[in-house]
Simulated assay, not measured.
Amino acid sequence: MPSAPRSFAVIGLGTFGTTVARELARIGNEVIGIDIEERNVSAVADHISYAVIADARDEAALREAGVGDCDVALIAIGEDLEANVLATINTKMVGVETIWAKAINRTHHRILSKLGAERVILPEEEVGLHVAQVLHNPRMRNYLSMGNGFHVVNFLVPEQLGGKRLSELRLRDKFGVRSLGVMRGTDFLGTEADDPQLKVEDKLMLLGRRNDLRDFAASL
């Protein structure tokens, strides 16, 4: 069931902020985009609900833009550390309850966390980790960190597993990994309880700790 539309303020309309703003708007949310540069605002104006030239270091400017009425704010300002920090403080001051913020390094991450950002993002680091995991194992198509050391990954089923039942892999017994299901194209085939027969290039969705998932991948 799709989530109900919400209102978002995206502050900083560089590549990262613009991508987030446009995608949020595309899937049906109200999005206010804010940047100090006219060219950045103009580039996204036709794709989101409202785009405004404003300096996020100015609390009054954020109030006037309607940021305080938004459910969530994303501080996507890049290299200007001062502007990023002040935008985070001002967004909190105007009454936004949920704030996500982009950090440029670990020290910046700690500062934003102390200022009350609910989630702090290190985009280059997170993408880099993702790319490294996929490069390391070409059968891995995607992965998602679930916290507490657990990850969800999907693997393309190789030739040696083609024709086997999911139960034959004994994922829990041998690797401590749980199957969440099997995708064949756009069809969901089910979990171990349904015990589907695997075909080459099916996507096997697994939940487990990194080392256990690595052991399973090494066995293929």
Rank of each mutant, 00 (worst) to 15 (best):
F8L: 10
R165F: 13
D195N: 14
R165I: 02
F150S: 06
L135S: 12
D46I: 01
P158I: 04
N142S: 14
D58S: 06
R172P: 06
E97A: 15
Y143R: 08
T186W: 07
A21H: 03
A45I: 09
V127H: 11
G185M: 07
R6W: 03
E126T: 14
V96P: 01
G68I: 11
V31N: 02
G33N: 05
M183Y: 13
M140T: 07
E201T: 12
S42Y: 12
L204W: 11
D58M: 01
I48N: 07
G149T: 08
V153I: 15
N90Q: 05
E82R: 09
K114N: 11
E79Q: 14
K102F: 09
I75W: 00
R63L: 14
R57Q: 11
E64V: 14
G176K: 07
P158G: 08
G176P: 04
E125G: 09
E118L: 07
I99H: 06
N84I: 05
R22Y: 01
I99C: 09
A56D: 05
L189Q: 03
Q160F: 05
I36G: 04
S145H: 13
G33L: 12
L62M: 09
F175K: 00
V157G: 02
S49N: 07
L122Y: 10
S49Y: 05
A132G: 13
V177W: 02
H109V: 00
R39Y: 14
P2T: 12
R170L: 12
L115Q: 04
D195Q: 04
L213N: 10
L207N: 10
A4S: 15
M205D: 02
V120L: 08
P138E: 06
V31E: 03
N154A: 07
E118K: 13
V44Y: 13
A117Q: 10
R184V: 02
E37G: 01
E30I: 08
T18K: 13
E168H: 12
H108T: 08
A217G: 06
G185R: 03
S179P: 03
S167N: 12
V52P: 03
L156R: 13
H130Q: 15
G147Y: 03
A45D: 08
S3K: 11
L166T: 04
A56C: 10
V85W: 00
T98R: 14
R170I: 02
G128T: 04
A132T: 11
N105D: 15
T107N: 14
D46F: 02
E118Q: 12
H130Y: 15
S42P: 09
R184Y: 02
G78H: 06
